[in-house]
Amino acid sequence: MPVPDSPDRGSLRRWFRLLPVVPSILLLVLFMLAPVAWSFYASFTDAALSGRAALNPQWIGLDNYVRMLTDSVFPLSAWLTVVFVGASAILGQNALGLVIALLMTKSGGATASLVGTAVVAAWVLPEIVAAFAAYAYFSQDGTLNQLLGMFGVHGANWLYAFPLAAIILANVWRGTAFSMLVYRAALSQVPRDVSEAALMDGARGWQRLAFITLPIIRGSIATNLMLITLQTLAVFTLIWVMTAGGPSNASTTLPVLAYQEAFKLGDIGYGTAIASVLILIGMVFGTVYVRLFRRVNP
């Protein structure tokens, strides 16, 4: 840092130096903070997409939140969201990503890069294209049922009979690449002599994994879990294209429910209430994430 000035001129200069941060702060306040604040405000009103309540929303206190608890769809939707995030992110993407990364340390380089490309392709594709591909795959006469047919199995109409399972599998397919990349990077940091020393001591493969490798990369595991949970919590397009939340709300996660209430049914007040709940969940996770980060990088 250059020469220190007299106290008051110095502090003025320090503030002046922070000036370049202002455009970012303006953008964040206008397009992120304001919508969040407006969301909390509107969730206490009967704001609507059209009609009298669109022009002049009334304050209705906690009515929207009371409705959430008494309504039968919201608890179902919250539960579906928990299952969706738990099964597709925490179990599916996380575990599969780790398995692929571990296998890649044992496999040949050509296989690793080919498979890596296949996994990443599903992730880089535009979300709408990935959603169409997943829809075609699980549809009545789609690829999955054709494959099952080759083994003499008559497959179900997956999108209607098992919509939640279909979107969970589709999201594992779509998102595993992120975990795989995180774990490949993490595993490449594991010092080789540590696991070789354990090998000398006669530790078996799974013992080395459980007691040496995983503890070393636990920081990456925690970070990865946080990030994929947040990403999966926000998944909308995949579900909307594949099942539109149906049939009869059997795959309506909270983002889909918020969309339906706000835009299909025109109830902005109730839609923002659901959105506010999602934002709050995001904030809780964000707080944990920041704390986790501060512990790892003091």
Partner: peptide
């Protein structure tokens, strides 16, 4: 860092309102 964790889909309803 906290901002990176806000679910964007959730903000879309209020952003539309805004």
């Amino acid at each position: 860092l906290f901002g990176t964790s806000l679910p964007v889909t959730a903000i879309m309803v209020p952003v539309y309102g805004l």
